[in-house]
Design a protein around this nucleic acid. Structure first.
Lengths: 195, 195
DNA sequence: AGCTTTTCATAACATATATCAACCAGCAAA
DNA sequence: TTTGCTGGTTGATATATGTTATGAAAAGCT
């Protein structure tokens, strides 16, 4: 249950066994079935979640009722409505399991207490957040200068494991296009690659 | 010169005078004139920069030579090619002054050393990075679900001080549209607001 | 002041994507 | 078996944005 997380942290900050033990003690294991809701839009968000096993999506619903997938998460990723989590405001996102999933929940209060007790964790999360920030800058850059086909191809290369697991209409939503458009793009891309 | 930065940090982490003194000692004051290049695409990036006074843009140039503005920076913001800075890889962005500017440069090595000596700074930059991450999630969400007009209006509301200072074609580029499209949008928006 | 460059605006036409509607295959539930 | 649901595809048309070209006002420079 905790092995993948231990490894995940150790790749950035080597930990004593006891330090990881302290971390473990503030985590809440959670099981969630496909289609169940982890975070409901409008509610307060007291945890961020590490994905041990499974696949989830975070989506936003606008005034017109249209949904956009803001984030996917699979094994070894963190997911939450981070805005709501860090600012203690009501969630604007909904988070739903795409597959049966196993998570480890981490509360903000416990995290801040952990930072005080073991500063290594402050470093770990600084590094993680920096990397997350950098990957968002890349996503924004793609959105600015690439057309839909290029973004789709890039998505397949960057996240082959996600592309295999989630329905195409979720990917379309993540790319900011309609499923019909993605279908047409896929037809062209597939045709080009199969002579 | 250092007052605004001192205040900027103190709003997140109250510092002893001596702690800020240590920070000051690793900063490099830099003056740059309008249109001068701060970071050249392809070069290595040894600093991130705090803007004391002025206005700059970070843009990416694609294979076809088209440029997209990835970031603006005005007083109290940080700017760099953060990907190149943190990963010690060649810059993919160009950073150019839009106005004569005064900056404070911070080297990665000095920053990491500072983290070891005064852990408060690790906390400060964790918090700053978290906020930067959150603001990028908002920008991505806007890109997914809003059309160009809405994104332009949102930009004007969020960054009125930037909208006043930079030419419209820079804003168009930041929004991922062509200046001609922004011109059309502005005509409609202005018409609606002036009966 | 006079000249050049920058910035913004406009128009006509081209293209990509959205929209709307219909359809189909696979599959699970009844 | 039928039924309904999910995920995907296709076609006709509408709309938004890009492209190309032109011009004019504003700003900067000598």
């Amino acid at each position: 249950m905790f092995d993948s997380l231990h490894k995940h942290i150790n790749e950035i900050i080597p930990l004593e066994e006891s330090e990881f033990g302290e971390f473990k003690s503030i985590l809440t294991p959670i099981k969630i079935r496909k289609k169940e809701i982890l975070i409901t839009s409008g509610s307060y968000v007291d945890m961020e979640y590490y994905v041990v096993k499974g696949c989830l999506k975070a989506y936003h619903t606008n005034e017109a009722g249209h949904r956009s997938v803001v984030q996917f998460a699979i094994e070894d990723w963190w997911i939450s409505d981070f805005n709501a989590f860090f600012n203690k405001t009501p969630a604007k996102l909904t988070i739903e399991a795409i597959e049966d999933s196993t998570l480890l929940g981490l509360k903000l209060d416990n995290l801040e207490e952990l930072y005080r007790r073991i500063p290594k964790f402050e470093r770990f999360f600084r590094v993680k957040t920096t990397r997350a920030f950098l990957s968002l800058t890349n996503r924004i850059q793609s959105g600015l200068e690439k057309d839909s086909r290029e973004r789709y191809i890039e998505f397949c290369k960057t996240y082959p494991n996600i592309e295999q697991r989630v329905p195409n209409y979720h990917i379309a939503s993540y790319l900011g296009i309609k499923p019909e458009s993605l279908s047409r793009i896929r037809r062209e891309v597939v045709t080009i690659n199969t002579p």
